[in-house]
């Protein structure tokens, strides 16, 4: 077992992908930035200087403190505070965590949904394929944000605002996931159409394996390459969609602020001079999305044999 693991590790370090990673400084930089965001976000309760959700530690007298390099800055709030006196750096770390949770969950949801439907569609073909793909076509004609807005509105109407606030995260994950599954389904279907006619799949059929096992054991692992690329780029897209929805006020409530909510809150104070409340969360969002996109681009090129 250990021999296999070390063998696998040696293989990974020898691989073309790792080689292209080492030779692209931009990719290494974006990987480092992404990693910093991940660590900062997921360990925020331990790493953040303050707890922005602990009302007892908030001091309204500290509200609107500017960043430390401005005349009225206070060294315990390095990039200032918002209207409630919450430390912005901590709020961004906690907010990134919320954004990332929504991002990961909705990407996972979209991926599971899209990959399963794509597999079924491509493997069985015929009527099943037509129905799934026509639904996908119709959904593609609507912008993702519109679908998310619609779903969010429906849930809000059904449950009332108060209950909605408790379930906001789930609703967001569901609506973002539902608006991005088409890409996975189409990509996977395309690859499945190629793979299912290969002889190793037919060999499995001659052995007598049932279709479900063939799809999971043989076809699925061989179509996952492109899915990985889409998932990476979609993580950035999902985070942006979440931020947009929260900015529009249909996403997460201020009690559970994501990056988008922070930008929206700060937006109100932009013209009264407290620019830092909205600018810093905005920069954080932009840098994170850029880094993840660059990683996704590199992954796409690295996995594309024609570009090697």
């Amino acid at each position: 077992m250990i021999a296999r693991l070390s063998d696998g590790l040696r293989r990974a370090l020898d691989s073309d992908i790792f080689y292209s990673f080492r030779n692209s400084p931009l990719t290494i930089l974006s990987a480092v930035v992404t990693l910093i965001f991940f660590i900062g976000a997921f360990f925020s309760p331990w790493l953040a200087p303050h707890n922005p959700f602990d009302v007892a530690t908030l001091n309204l007298m500290d509200a609107f403190t500017p960043p430390v390099w401005l005349p009225e800055g206070n060294p315990i709030y390095p990039i200032g505070t918002d209207d409630q006196g919450r430390d912005l750096l901590s709020a961004i770390m906690y907010g990134t965590r919320v954004s990332l949770v929504v991002g990961f969950c909705s990407v996972a949801f979209a991926m599971v949904l899209g990959v399963s439907l794509g597999l079924i569609s491509g493997y069985f073909g015929g009527m099943v394929d037509s129905v799934i793909m026509r639904v996908a076509d119709v959904q593609l004609t609507f912008p993702a944000i519109l679908i998310a807005l619609l779903l969010d509105g429906v849930v809000r109407g059904l449950m009332g605002t108060e209950q909605h606030d408790n379930l906001a995260l789930m609703v967001l994950v569901f609506s973002i996931g539902l608006s991005y599954w088409v890409q996975y389904a189409r990509t996977v279907r395309g690859s499945v159409l190629v793979e299912r006619n290969k002889e190793y799949v037919q060999a499995a059929r001659v052995i007598g394996l049932p279709s479900v096992l063939i799809m999971i054991r043989h076809v699925l692992p061989n179509v996952l390459g492109p899915v990985l690329v889409i998932a990476t780029i979609n993580l950035a897209l999902a985070v942006i969609t979440e931020a947009t929805l929260s900015f529009l006020g249909v996403g997460l409530p201020p009690t559970q602020p994501s990056l988008g909510t922070l930008i929206r809150i700060g937006n109100g104070f932009l013209f009264s001079g407290e620019w830092w409340i909205t600018v810093f969360p905005g920069i954080a969002l932009a840098v994170f999305v850029l880094a993840v996109n660059l990683l996704g681009d590199w992954l796409r090129d690295a996995l594309n044999p024609r570009l090697r």
């Binding site: 190793y200 037919q202 060999a203 007598g208 043989h218 692992p221």
Partner: peptide
């Protein structure tokens, strides 16, 4: 007739496509 079916096997033309690469 699953038992009969399993007495048959097939060898394919393209040895590069008939083995799962993973």
């Amino acid at each position: 007739h699953g038992d009969k079916q399993s007495r048959m096997q097939m060898i394919f033309q393209d040895p590069y496509a008939s083995l799962n690469p993973r």
